[in-house]
Amino acid sequence: MAAPIVSISNLVKAYAGGFTALDGIDLSIQRGEILALLGPNGAGKTTLISTICGIATPSSGAIRVGGYDVVEDFRDARRMIGLVPQELTLEPFEKVRDTVRFSRGLFGKPRDDAYLDQVLKDLSLWDKRDNKIVTLSGGMKRRVLIAKALSHEPDVLFLDEPTAGVDVELRRDMWRVVEALKAKGTTIILTTHYIEEAEAIADRIAVINKGQIMLVEETAALMDRMGRKEAVIDLAAPLSAIPEALHNYDLSLAGDGCQLIYGYDTSAERTGIRRLLNDLEAAGITMRDLSTRQSSLEEVFVKLVHAEDAA
């Protein structure tokens, strides 16, 4: 495997007050991948991003971006990074175009209006290019932040909750932009509380809780491994209770007794569905329809975080 574009080893970040927000993080991010960082409020997602980007200083451990140490070779490391912060922090009286130009200059790149114009167009900001930021809506401001982060053509883009408080259409726009960046080879690290979003877009998912990485895995593999499937059996006649004969199965009643839900593990050797159907017939229960569904990443996530909290 190629050298990771971001590699973090044994990173600890304790804030001035003494609170340890990151507690021994090890993480490698491959060039060109989309990594979703999931975790409850206060897990340390923003702190992790801030430490990589230079806004916070690591207490111990090492972070390399493109092979450059973010403290020792901060210039080379930071030149590669674009950051869209969680908060909508913008200069209110600046014009959209000026603030994007400012960002590019700050990263030491020569002025390139053609490129910046294209970025503004891609983010549907072209009409607003001469507007003062204070006059923009929240969603528009979010786009301006993205435009600023892209202004210097970064290799690695951090998106800290890019879709928080963003409407459906803009969210779809945003994922289009992310896909286009990925196609160009940009590495993308994003945090989100919309888990289905992570599931849909991320190549890999990392779960962080209480400053520790709980899991990093390919999205698909994670779904397979952790995913519980459910078979939904529609009944011809409603049941008031689950018959004695079926108590060995993981069953629950739904739909006012018209549905039986059977949970099973996809990683088990046998699903047990065939046997269940036989037993249903033996018990004199008539089935009208059968469908299966997979539990979402959300449930996987909740399970993980709760298991940790219980431990």
Binding site: I55, A77, R78, L83, T89, L90, L106, F107, G108
Partner: peptide, 17 residues
């Protein structure tokens, strides 16, 4: 001012000494 409104993040994350 940038510290107050938070835009300092950009200065801190830029390749500037």
């Amino acid at each position: 001012f940038p510290k107050f409104i938070g835009t300092i993040y950009e200065i801190l994350s830029a390749p500037v000494s």
